[in-house]
Design a protein around this nucleic acid. Structure first.
Lengths: 148, 148
DNA sequence: ATAGATGCAAATGTTTTGCAGGAAA
DNA sequence: TTTCCTGCAAAACATTTGCATCTAT
């Protein structure tokens, strides 16, 4: 499967850092990749638990932190204050549906360069940014018209 | 003082909604306007407390919620997860210095219209957005060179 | 007099930490 | 067999709520 690559990356990270390769860590990474990220700690916990009862919240949170350090995941904080983990990949921003929770990624070079201009204007040195658009996705707009 | 206007707005909001005009509410609004917003609940609590010992966190939080309803304040959530209250005014976004915590507002029409394009492309209906640039402000960059 | 406000303490919800037992190397 | 992990329970932290008391109207 396509996830072998990431499992190998995890293994080599663990090895390089004198950490142990446990079934819990493997299981959490597995589920995380399966759902393609954008998942909360709670949700991840529930899903891993389905296959591995007995696993604790603690392990999920600790493992996700580890995956972030390993460069396989990254944390995202949207409006609801709940941390979500996504698969680490090149820079992008998000569209979030406030009705169904769907998250879509986008990337816009024009905005990036406008940001650079703003930063220059104020004399800041830019480290990172966060840009989120909240609204209703096409499916939910259709549902609205339907009557829900 | 310039704050009379807002105190009047508060009074009329309270009246319209059958709420009472208390010294706590007045004091909190006073301090909030004084510091020009972008303040945390904790910070606001400490400052109000300096002049009005005995006031509780609860009242600060409840009053800020009320001021938001009244359209005088609005909540902002930056990266650190602590709610900050700002003076409500026309749409804008923020530059945040991650060293000293300074917050600068900006507004960019080019970005706004680029957003509209993106939203259209994905078929979303845009309700609101959040755009924050994190970096080092000019003062902190100077300090860095200095040696701190 | 009475609806509404206050302040305390306790609850909340998410994430983290201390610790004793358990598993990988 | 030593080092690192795990899971539980408890802590942490910002914010909210229950409740008895107090206050503006």
């Amino acid at each position: 499967m396509a996830h072998d690559l990431e499992q190998k990356a995890l293994a080599s990270y663990l090895e390089d850092h004198n950490l142990k390769h446990t079934k819990q860590r493997e299981a959490i990474l597995e589920v995380f990749l399966e759902v393609k990220g954008h998942i909360t700690g709670e949700d991840l916990y529930q899903r891993v638990r389905a296959h591995h009862p007995g696993i604790g919240y603690t392990t999920v949170y600790r493992t996700m932190k580890l995956l972030c350090d390993a460069g396989l995941a990254s944390e995202r904080h949207f409006d609801d204050g709940i941390t979500r983990y996504e698969i680490e990949h090149e820079h992008h921003d998000h569209l979030v549906c406030v009705r169904c929770g769907k998250i879509v990624e986008f990337e816009c070079q024009m905005i990036e360069s406008a940001q650079d201009d703003i930063v220059k204007r104020y004399g800041f040195r830019l480290l990172r940014h966060r840009h989120e658009l909240y609204g209703h996705c096409p499916d939910c707009q259709r549902r609205e018209k339907g009557g829900a």
